[in-house]
Design a binder for these strands. Structure first.
Lengths: 253, 253
DNA sequence: GAGTGGTCTAGACCACGGT
DNA sequence: CCGTGGTCTAGACCACTCG
């Protein structure tokens, strides 16, 4: 008697733990506050550290927590909305562009890039590295591939690389008339170089936004941008940078 | 001599494993093929099962693998592109809509939904459940919130719920003139109900697309759609459903 | 019932950030 | 140096699918 058939479908411990922690975060913690360390928390809940970590990992994936080795686990601020699909399409580097050019190199296109550009594998492309910062934090790293035929009059400047060269490539790109662009978003994990730029560990979850820019009937540029999935919410809209208030119906269960 | 300072920055085992497996998938396996089980694979690579699983988890996150309890691990097909931001904005349920209405209910708006709708918490809303299928597989589950004031002339039909009611709500919605819409995409984990509909375990990674539909100067509808992050690539574009060939510069390192 | 992936444990050591 | 999170091990049991 009294054994009311609870747990007839017992949910995993880490799942329940996640729920409990999530509620505690809402009610008992403030943004930026540091949590007890993993060993203490595990002991407090009577589970192994690995189990606790499984719960923390999910909460970090959902943008509720931020963990840094050697430092601790802190309560994350709400995700920042970053505008990705602007109403009026524009070339990278156009007025008002939020990206910052970092570097530039000229080389033959890797096979995958050549395929996306629909050119031959021998085509020379400028590879422009750019980074995007929001609220003082790096949120995205981008590789922008510009085939040589899109910027035919570039030779004026002879610096082979560096930010100045990158800006020159972008400036030349403006001379073409942009006819359209197609983007896609998918989940990925950060490569080592992107992870470094995003201040995360390799393998961290990222939202990969790939864009093809169309001009003169072909693909004039191609970009792969990786956004921190833990801190970013990508916004697409025809009403500009509208503030969307909160995650309604928070995806945590 | 000969100790050429390799591994001065030793990368984690699971990371190396992931790379090795990823290359093996490209060269030695075909889509749909089943891999050896986790215990065998772990033994073959001389690591603990947990370490192997860490590598498999990442590959699954990247959409390279599909694992199902009681069945095995199979090589996943390339992600399907699903169009999310169409060039001409349209109401949910308009002609050509790819969603299928499942159910409908009328109740007071939960606090989070009321906030997103910018209404009072007491506002009555129709909650329409819809699902989206692509290539025979469920790819997304949606909750669409339609406040009662957006569909004032609905009372003709008296069925309180069910697919027919859902379609009636959508039909009434078409009478308003759509003035704009704003969407955002972020990473989340599937709630239990969504997971079931998506044929995944609770907590599976999903891309959460929230959209606010604007009409008559206010928010006329609000939708939260969760897409399977492992199998979907969300496409936004002004050139229709353009086929983007492959992941170039695959995010695996 | 046999075999699969999913959960969980109780340890150990490592890499990193601050002191 | 210490404390943090990150990696790794060698087991165990459970939930599910299928023949």
């Amino acid at each position: 008697m009294g054994t009311t058939q609870l747990e007839s479908v017992p949910e995993p411990k880490y799942w329940h733990l996640k729920t409990v922690l999530s509620e505690a975060l809402d009610s008992e913690f403030t943004v930026g506050e540091i949590l007890p360390n993993e060993r203490d928390l595990a002991a407090r809940f009577g589970v192994a550290r690995a189990t606790l970590r499984q719960a923390l990992e999910q909460l970090e994936l959902e943008g509720r927590l931020q963990r840094r080795r050697g430092v601790g686990t802190t309560v994350a601020p709400p995700r920042v909305g970053v505008a990705v699909g602007t109403e009026q399409h524009a070339w990278p580097g156009a007025a008002g562009d939020v990206w910052q050019a970092v570097d530039c190199a000229l080389a033959a296109a890797p096979a995958a890039v050549a395929a996306a550009l629909e050119t031959g594998p021998e085509e020379a492309v400028h590879t422009v590295r750019r980074s995007r910062v929001s609220h003082g934090q790096p949120v995205a790293a981008e590789l922008l591939y510009v085939p040589a035929f899109s910027v035919p009059d570039l030779s004026a400047i002879d610096a082979p690389s560096g930010p100045a060269r990158a800006r020159a490539v972008l400036r030349e790109l403006q001379r073409l008339e942009l006819e359209g662009q197609e983007s896609s978003v998918e989940l990925g994990s950060a490569r080592a170089d992107d992870a470094k730029e995003l201040d995360r560990l390799p393998g961290a979850p990222v939202l990969v936004v790939t864009t093809r820019y169309l001009a003169a009937g072909r693909i004039a540029a191609y970009s792969v941008a990786t956004y921190r999935a833990d801190t970013c919410r990508l916004t697409f809209g025809d009403s500009g940078n509208v503030e969307i208030h909160q995650d309604p119906e928070r995806q945590a269960s």
